[in-house]
Design a protein around this nucleic acid. Sequence first.
RNA 1: GGUCUCUUGGCCGAGUGGCUAGGCAGUGGUCUGCAAAACCAUCCACGGCGGUUCGAAUCCGCCAGAGACCUCCA
Length: 490
Amino acid sequence: MENKLFIYNTLNRKKELFEPINASHVGLYVCGPTVYGDAHLGHARPAITFDLLFRYLTHLGYKVRYVRNITDVGHLVNDADEGEDKIAKKARLEELEPMEVVQFYTDRYHKDMDDLNVRKPSIEPRASGHIMEQMAMIDQLLANGFAYESNGSVYFDVEAYSKKYDYGKLSGRKIEDLISNTRELDGQGEKKNSFDFALWKKAAPEHIMRWPSKWSDGFPGWHMECSAMSQKYLGEEFDIHGGGLDLQFPHHECEIAQSTGAHGHEAVHYWMHNNMITINGQKMGKSLGNFITLSQMFSGENDVLEQAYSPMTVRFFMLQAHYRSPLDFSNDALKAAEKGFKRLMTALATLNKINVSETSTIDAEELTGKCYDALNDDLNTPILIAHLFDGVKTINALAAGNAKIDANNLEKLKTLYQKLIFDVLGLKAEEEANTSNEMLDKVISLLLTTRNEAKKNKDWATADRIRDELTNLGIVVKDTKDGFEWEINK
RNA sequence: GGUCUCUUGGCCGAGUGGCUAGGCAGUGGUCUGCAAAACCAUCCACGGCGGUUCGAAUCCGCCAGAGACCUCCA
């Protein structure tokens, strides 16, 4: 395959030609959700970004193993909760088994991802199912002298690591800066240095989720799971690791330190980070309480929302911005995306009705080249979509008879749109509500047929009355040349 | 406080040292019995002040404003 894909590598802060370790295979790891609540708009960003990457690499002919984890253990809550596990906290509040909570929100997450047409990863490992692997890696770090045990917990020794390797290379941080900038946290007294991080944490008595180990009854530290699971499924060295920009430090920095400390070399060749979703210019986040869940987006049930937005509207909205740019939520922006998406899909339908000519005023090859150039430039979907909209103008001109296209070019154009819109961008036609109710469809068709007969008889009063009454009921009537169309207005 | 990023037209959002981004909205038009929808055309721009340059919105500096990370976070 021709390899022209450039990826922005956070490690070097520049776009680099993507060259996989194995010419035909790609290993991709992405940090997945912590399943203690519904997924919000922010979760959709990495899911869609790396779904796009997964789809594009597959489209290019690579065999991709895409691993996206489920975090169901280990993350500490804020200090008010004294280190209680997030999952355990939720479980206590709702009097459910921790794993019941995990299952509930994992299922909800999967439903949201399906709605967004996000393809399932090849492997979706859970942290709780990989305690052994994490303990083994901790052993390795202890043996290599980059970790120490303290009061039943095990910590990563950042100072020792820094003597040999560069801690902070990913996020551009220096040890000296870290020394003065760490606040007091639970268990600080057990650590040699404030910036050391937990590999294994001894569980407090009230802590429900715990596993026995040689150090203590406890649970793995915040960052172990990704290092251990990526290694297990993708090897000690693999191609791409992705995640949200907010995970760059400390999470990904710690992952690098853990993997390097355990194996003597780095694991990841390309680090990719998607930017944040903001609302009124501020990050959308759980702790800020300003998030909109995906199911709320789809149903419209949130005070911030002026209406419901379909999953494809949300997906298209995100693809219209570059994944490394912050993206601000607003009703106006979503409405614009909704209309734009509709225009694109309408043109796609038009494309199938175009007549072939002997000659062609259209060069499909040129448009194809532009589209792939955009994708190859660090997945520049806004540019790609701009080119697709230029193509929409062309398609409409063809349909109106203002341009000509031969069979060869038409076939190329159709293939291009099919592949890019469905396979790569992962968009899909959304079923109109009217097809879901056959009875309603028949009744309205009857009414509109009657209306058309009235129109033929120039009985405008009757025709308008039917249209107006339907409009009052929330049904929009659209006359066409050979009949009518209708849809339910939201 | 430390590190870093950003500032584009009514809104969203690309890009670039000189050549139309694109979408939505607005305006005008085609179509229609009228409308809606669709389609066509079109207005509006690069935070402020300096500098480099033949030429900068694009490079550099300063100022102003916004944000991210430094703590679980997508």
